[in-house]
Design a binder for these strands. Structure first.
Length: 112
DNA sequence: GGCGTGACCGCTC
DNA sequence: TGAGCGGCCACGC
């Protein structure tokens, strides 16, 4: 079932530490789905609340928010990020807040 | 099983 | 920076 992909995506997103952000492409990559960034977006949309997936820590490759500025989702995402100390400058985050995952740690936690 | 759709990406200008 | 464009591919009809 294709939901296996979603599971991997959710697992990966859950690994993003507080105060850091990652791009859709990056998540897709780490989840073993290179080039399938769009699938990550869908997966986040389908993510059940119970998992408490930190969807707001996922941005576009240019570090801008995935939602159009002014929308409820964009505002919520902006506030959640600010609450974690992520620097936002005109709908974009500083590159110092990008998540730089440790490969060994990922291999251990994801159990591929 | 073709067709439109999308929380994207990378390259150009 | 920002905008435009083609490419990608899983999903729902």
């Amino acid at each position: 079932m294709a939901a296996d992909n979603y599971q991997r995506i959710w697992q990966t997103v859950l690994l993003i530490p507080s105060g850091k952000v990652a791009s859709y492409g990056q998540i897709a990559d780490l989840a073993g789905l290179p080039g399938r960034a769009r699938l990550v977006g869908k997966a986040l949309g389908y993510a059940p609340k119970e998992l408490a997936v930190p969807w707001y820590r996922v941005l576009r490759s240019d570090r801008s928010l995935a939602f159009a500025p002014g929308t409820a989702d964009a505002l919520a995402q902006r506030q959640l990020l600010l609450a974690e100390g992520v620097m936002l400058r005109s709908n974009r985050v500083a590159n110092t807040d990008l998540w730089q995952p440790d490969l060994a740690e990922l291999l251990f936690k994801l159990q591929y």
